[in-house]
């Protein structure tokens, strides 16, 4: 079994009698990317900040990097790196100054110039914080979180506010950081991000973990059902699809037809049926289940953006 970096048992935390996190237990292993996904307000930030030691838990146990009291053990902060969901720096601090200042706070650091180069910020070294774009600010905060060469990196809603291209660049970067041997604990409300990036995912809803596994296993737990979605130029009785053995369900949503089914020949049979009847189809799309569907199946709700 891999080495456990974080162990959380029966964590509970509430604010003014509203329970934010209820009896959570999970573990994080060395060198994995562990993700916590769920809608805003599900309790992700509360959980991650309790583990970081920024918030006091009401009850439960947290063991992190061999330490039992993240709230009080000052030594912990030298071994972890934190990217907060929401933070900023003084408007007129230069990137260089921020790196120098945060470097001076740790007993052991890596060269911040190398870090900036890796994060593609070298040419911004003399820019003020307020002149940076959203993506650059986010990368600077990751640089600050890596400045002490931490064993464990926390990323809270890493890609919120980034455009899709910046988000993909960020994902590559996080994979590189993991490949250097670090362990990552991240939260996100983007199911796609969790699916592409995380080795294991805890799905959290209303302060409770409703599922915890690899993204592949979570998706497979839904069965192997696929969907073929298309629209037709002419009418075609939906019953005809049900004659195909592999089809489980047919729906009409607006002017689009959604055929559910499974099996290797399923897609082929649906399309052959259309072609043999000389039906013209448009905008055809084949969908396989993803984490979004897992969340829907487990909670009965769509994840809120």
């Amino acid at each position: 079994m891999d080495k456990k970096i974080v162990e959380v048992k029966n964590l509970r935390k509430g604010y003014n009698e509203v329970t934010a996190v209820d009896n959570l237990s999970f573990e994080i292993y060395e060198n994995e990317i562990f993700g916590m996904v769920g809608p805003n307000g599900a309790g992700k930030t509360t959980t991650i900040e309790c583990v970081e030691g920024l918030r006091n838990k009401d009850s439960g146990e947290i063991k992190i990097l061999g330490l039992n009291n993240p709230e009080t053990d000052g030594d912990l902060k030298t071994k972890i790196g934190i990217q907060l969901q929401e933070s900023s720096l003084p408007e007129r601090i230069k990137v260089r100054e921020a790196m120098e200042m945060f470097s001076s706070l740790y007993p052991r650091t890596i060269d911040w110039k190398d870090l900036l180069a890796k994060l593609n910020l070298t040419e911004k070294v003399n820019s003020y914080f307020r002149e940076l774009s959203g993506g650059q600010k986010q990368r600077l905060f990751i640089a600050l979180a890596l400045i002490n060469d931490p064993e464990l990196l926390f990323l809270d809603e890493l890609s919120t506010g980034l455009d899709p291209q910046a988000r993909h660049t960020m994902w590559d970067l996080i994979r590189d950081i993991r490949n250097e041997g670090k362990t990552i604990f991240m939260t996100t409300h983007y199911m796609e991000e969790a699916e592409r990036l995380c080795d294991r995912v805890a799905i959290i809803d209303r302060g409770k973990i409703v599922a915890l596994d690899t993204p592949q296993n979570l998706v497979q737990s839904l069965g192997k059902e696929m969907r073929v979605i298309f629209s037709l130029e002419n009418d075609f009785p939906l019953e005809n699809f049900k004659k195909i053995e592999e089809v489980t369900e047919v729906e009409k949503i607006g002017d689009r037809i959604v055929v559910h089914g499974e099996g290797e020949e399923f897609v082929y049979r649906v399309i052959s049926l259309l072609m043999s009847n000389k039906m013209k189809f448009r905008e055809i799309k084949i969908e396989q289940p993803n984490l979004e569907d897992v969340f829907l199946a487990l909670t009965g709700e769509k994840i809120r953006e």
Partner: peptide, 16 residues
């Protein structure tokens, strides 16, 4: 302003 912009919180993430 350091508190409102969560700059103080960022410093709480360091050993200082």
């Amino acid at each position: 302003s350091y508190r409102e912009k969560k700059i103080l919180k960022r410093f709480r993430c360091t050993p200082m």
